[in-house]
Simulated assay, not measured.
Amino acid sequence: MHAARLVRPIRTANRQFSRSLSAAATTTTRTHDTVIPLSNVEAQWEKLTADEQLTVHQQLEELQKRDWKTLSLDEKKAAYYIAFGPHGPRADLHPPGSVPKLIMAILVGVAAGGALYLTSRAFAGPPPKTMTKEWQEASNERARELNLDPITGVPSEGYSGKGFVQSK
């Protein structure tokens, strides 16, 4: 109930805001009744003023209300460019020179990781005594004595694996 009381004023405010936007757009269109050609909008778009861009956008909105089969190729290209083209927030997602910087940053990260690994290995202590080949062979003998995993393990008949030995 409380949320419903909050939503109604927000919806009303949104409607009033959209009405004021559409009123501003229609006044802009009335003052600028110039028809901007839609051929090659991609090349012209950055050179157009904000009012002219708004006019082109409104022209395309009116054109798109019709059947799409009746639109010319230039009109379709313009509509696609305005909707999905590399302008505004989509402009220059990867500015020139960003790819080499990215590759260099990756290489620096890999080099830093390698240096950290080698440094930690240099200051590490000796491996534990259980990693010696003698200890691991003794573990195989103990497994045979205790008959550990008699079906597929070290004490099984015909076993040909290395068992617990993993050191060279």
Rank of each mutant, 00 (worst) to 15 (best):
N40Y: 15
F123P: 10
L54I: 14
D33I: 13
T152R: 15
R142I: 14
T31F: 12
W68F: 09
W45R: 02
E145D: 14
T152C: 14
D149S: 13
Q53P: 08
W135S: 06
L60Q: 09
T31K: 07
T28F: 04
L73N: 09
D33A: 12
S120E: 15
A122F: 09
G125F: 03
S120T: 13
D33R: 13
T34L: 14
T26C: 01
E137D: 07
P100K: 00
L93K: 10
R142V: 14
A24D: 05
P89R: 08
T12I: 00
V110Q: 10
L60W: 11
G153F: 00
G153H: 02
H32A: 02
E62R: 12
L38Q: 11
A43Y: 06
T55Y: 04
R121A: 11
L54P: 04
T152G: 12
Y81S: 14
A23W: 05
S156W: 05
K69I: 06
W45P: 00
E62G: 14
P96A: 05
K77M: 09
L63W: 11
L107G: 09
P9E: 00
N40D: 14
T27N: 05
T29E: 09
N40A: 12
S39Q: 15
H57T: 09
P95W: 03
G114S: 09
T130N: 15
E61C: 13
V154I: 08
A138D: 11
R5H: 04
P96I: 12
S39A: 15
I82K: 12
R142Y: 12
L107C: 05
A43W: 09
V7Y: 03
G153K: 01
T29C: 10
T49A: 00
L148C: 09
N140M: 10
E137I: 07
T26Y: 05
R144K: 12
V7H: 05
P126L: 08
A124N: 15
S72Q: 11
A122Y: 07
P100Y: 07
A138T: 13
S72V: 08
T70R: 09
M1I: 01
G88Y: 00
G158F: 01
A111D: 07
E62V: 15
R121S: 10
Q64G: 03
A83D: 15
V165L: 01
S18C: 01
V56P: 04
T49K: 01
Q44T: 01
P126T: 10
K47Q: 06
S167P: 07
E42K: 01
Q64D: 08
P9C: 05
T130L: 03
G97W: 00
E52Y: 02
T55L: 05
Q16M: 00
S39L: 15
H87P: 02
A143M: 13
A122N: 10
G163S: 02
T26H: 04
A3G: 09
F84I: 02
D149H: 01
A78F: 07
L6Q: 08
T12N: 01
N147T: 15
N14I: 04
A4C: 03
L21K: 05
N147C: 15
R15G: 05
A13K: 13
P95A: 06
P89H: 07
R144H: 02
A3R: 04
T132A: 03
F123H: 11
H32E: 06
S139M: 08
A25G: 07
I10R: 10
H94N: 12
L102H: 06
G158M: 02
F84N: 10
D67F: 04
L54F: 10
A3M: 02
Q16C: 03
L63N: 00
M131G: 11
A124K: 03
